[in-house]
Design a protein around this nucleic acid. Structure first.
Lengths: 347, 347
DNA sequence: CGGGCCACTGTTAGCGTTAACATCCCGGCG
DNA sequence: CGCCGGGATGTTAACGCTAACAGTGGCCCG
C-alpha cells in the first residue's frame, strides 16, 4: 500500500528535476524567453508534456501582480443587447489571453455598481469593463476611484472617460432616413427609458435626421424597452390613426417594443407595412419572424467587444485610447413600405 | 520632491504596523478567527478601514490552494435559457462568496469543450460548471478528467454524473396535458435539434403524456430552436390543416419556434386559438406579446443556479449531492383554447 | 594566446498570505 | 504559593513563481 499522500499538484521544480535543469530554466521555457538552448528547451517541453504540468496562476499573479483576468459588470443580461455584449467581450478577452470574471447586477443602482466594481477589484482583476446603460449606474461609475483601469461599454456618459460603444445616433438616423426615403412625411418615435443613455441617443439621432430633412418632429412616445410598453403605445397610436391622424411610420428604440406595437396595431386591424411602417433596433434573432419580418438596426457586438478589450489593454500599457463608436447597420425587411397615398383622411 | 516610487499596494504588514500588532493577528481578524481580544480586533479593524486595506487574493490562493472562483462554460448565450442560467448561477455563486469566470464556446464541439474546461482549470478555478445542451459537448464533458469537481447544468447525460437541471419531461407533460384537457384529441410536437438532451426530454414527456391519455401519438416534427424552423413547420402544418387534416393543438419545444409557427399560420389566415392551440416553452419576456399572447412553460433559473452552486460546493466538501430536478410551471395565456367542435371536415 | 563578451544556466530573494509552532501572561486550583 | 492550562499574541516557514544577479564556458578579436 502506498501512503497515498495528497497528490500535491506538480510544480516547476518537478519539471526541472525531470528535465535535469533548474526551475528557473523551466520558467524561461514556459514564458518563452530567448536564450534557452534549443536542446534544453526541447527537453523541458517534453518533461512538461509527460508530467502534464501547468503553471500555478496564483503564484504567478503574486509575483507579477497581474491575474490576466478582466472583470465585467453588467445589468439585465436577459436583454439581447447586453447578452451579446458579454459574448463579444468574452471572445475578445480570450483572444487576448485574458479571462472574464462576470458580475451581473440585480439592480442598476449606484450602490450596487460600486459594490460590484469593488468586489471585482478586490478579487484582483487587471481591469474592469462595465456596461452601465442606466444613468444611475453610469453616474456611479464616474465616481468610482479604482486602482485599476475602468472602461465603460455601451453607455455614454462624461466625455473624458474612456468608453466604447455603438453609434446609437447614427443608428437612429439610419432608421429615420429609411422611413423618410420611403416617402413618409414624418416618423414617430417610441423611446426607451429616459434614464438610459442609449435610449436618449436614439432620440437625438431621430430628431436630428427629421430636422435635417425639414420634416415635422412629433412628440416622442415614452416606452421602457418592454414589449408591454410597445403594446401600450401601439394601442394609443392605433386609436389616433383610426381617428384620422396621419401616422404612417414609427421607429422604435428596440425590437421588443416593436413587437408589442405590431401586436396592438394588429388587434385594431391595422397591419404593417400596409397601414404603418415600423422599424426596430437590435435585430433580435426573432426579428425576421415577426409578423411581418421586422426592419431593424443591427449592432456589431463582436466588434464592440474587440474594441473594448483593445482599449482596456491599451490603458494597461499606459496608453489612452479613444476608440471611434462602432457603426450600426440597417436591415430592411418587410415591416416598412412606401407611404400610403395621401387621401386627406378625415373619418 | 518625493521619490514617487510605485505606490505598492498595501499589505497585511502595513495594517499590522498601524495597529501595533503582528501581521498574523491581522490575518486572524480578517479571517474571523476566534481568540483575538475584542480590543485588538477593534484596533485592527480600524486600521484596515483607515488604510483601505484589502487582502491579496493571489497570495491567499497560493497558500490555501483555493481561488474561490467557479468556472462556467456555456454555449449560445444568445438563447434565453442559457442566458438566464448564467444569471441564476452568478447570483448563487456570489451569494456563496464565489465569483464566476465565464467562457462562452464558439461552437459546441467536444474539442472546444475540452479546451474550455482546461483553460478554466489552468486558470485555477475551484470547480467548473458546464452547460452542455448538445450531445457532443455533453459527451466530451464525461470524458474530461479534471482535478476539480465538474457539475453539469441543464444537460442530461450519463446518470452517474452530478447534474442539475429543470425537469424537462415534467414540463412537456404539463404542456401536453393542458392541451388535452382543453379537449384536443391529440397534440402535435415540434422538437428542438435531435442532439439536444433537453429537446429529447421534451419529446419523451410529450409522448408519455399522450400515451397515458390514450391519445394517438403523431409523428413529431423536427425543429432546431430557431423561429425559422418553427415557421417552416408552420407552413407545412397549415397546408395540412387546409387539406382537411385534424390538427388542432401544437406544443413546441421553445417559444421562438412558436413565434415562427404562429407567423406561418397567420399568413394562411389561420389564427390561434381559434383555428389552432399553441404552447411554447421558456417563457421569453416577449411571449406575453406574441399574437396572441403565448401559453408556455417557465423554468426557474434562479433556483437552478442555486442548486447547481449548492451541488458543486458540496462536492468541494467531499459530499456527493444528487439534487432533484427543478420543477417547471405552466403559464396559460391566450394561444390555447378549447378544441373546435368536430365537423368531419373535408374540404 | 589572452582578455572580454555573450549565450546559457544556476542561485537567491522576495511577492503577501496562512499554518504551525513558540511564547507570554494571567487566573485558578491543589 | 507554585504550577498548570489556555487565551492572546508573535515568529517562522512554506506556497510556486519570477526577477535580479552570479556564474560558467566558448568564441572572437586584438
Amino acid at each position: 500500500m502506498q501512503p497515498d499522500t495528497a497528490p500535491r499538484a506538480l510544480a516547476m521544480s518537478d519539471v526541472a528535476a525531470r528535465a535535469g535543469v533548474s526551475h528557473q530554466t523551466v520558467s524561461r521555457v514556459v514564458n518563452g524567453h530567448p536564450n534557452v538552448a534549443p536542446a534544453t528547451r526541447e527537453r523541458v517541453e517534453e518533461a512538461i508534456r509527460e508530467l502534464g504540468y501547468r503553471p500555478n496562476t496564483a503564484a504567478r499573479a503574486l509575483v507579477t501582480g497581474s491575474t490576466r483576468t478582466l472583470g465585467f459588470v453588467t445589468v439585465s443580461i436577459n436583454q439581447y443587447g447586453p447578452a451579446q455584449t458579454l459574448v463579444g467581450l468574452e471572445q475578445a478577452a480570450r483572444a487576448a489571453g485574458y479571462s472574464l470574471s462576470v458580475t451581473v447586477l440585480d439592480e442598476a443602482t449606484a450602490d450596487e455598481v460600486r459594490q460590484a466594481v469593488d468586489r471585482l477589484v478586490g478579487q484582483g482583476v487587471d481591469a474592469v469593463l462595465a456596461q452601465a446603460t442606466y444613468d444611475a449606474a453610469a453616474e456611479a461609475l464616474h465616481h468610482v476611484r479604482t486602482t485599476v483601469p475602468l472602461v465603460t461599454v455601451q453607455s455614454g456618459g462624461a466625455v473624458e472617460d474612456p468608453a466604447v460603444g455603438v453609434d446609437q445616433i447614427a443608428g437612429a438616423r439610419l432608421a429615420t432616413r429609411h422611413l423618410l426615403d420611403l416617402g413618409h412625411r414624418t416618423v414617430h418615435h417610441v423611446t426607451g427609458p429616459p434614464d438610459s443613455k442609449e435610449a436618449r441617443d436614439r432620440v437625438i439621432g431621430w430628431q436630428a435626421e427629421l430636422r435635417e430633412a425639414g420634416a415635422p418632429v412629433p412628440q416622442h412616445l415614452a416606452g421602457d424597452w418592454t414589449p408591454a410598453s410597445g403594446y401600450a403605445v401601439g394601442r394609443d397610436l392605433a386609436a389616433r390613426v383610426r381617428g384620422g391622424e396621419e401616422i404612417t411610420a414609427v421607429f422604435l428604440a428596440n425590437d421588443q417594443m416593436a413587437l408589442g406595437l405590431l401586436a396592438a396595431f394588429h388587434e385594431e386591424g391595422l397591419d404593417a407595412p400596409r397601414d404603418i411602417s415600423v422599424v426596430g433596433f437590435d435585430d433580435l434573432p426573432e426579428a425576421p419572424f415577426f409578423t411581418p419580418p421586422l426592419t431593424t438596426v443591427r449592432q456589431d457586438f463582436a466588434e464592440l467587444g474587440r474594441r473594448a478589450v483593445e482599449t482596456v489593454l491599451a490603458r494597461l500599457r499606459g496608453q489612452e485610447l479613444h476608440p471611434e463608436p462602432v457603426p450600426p447597420a440597417l436591415l430592411v425587411r418587410s415591416s416598412t413600405g412606401l407611404a400610403p397615398v395621401r387621401t386627406g383622411a378625415r373619418a
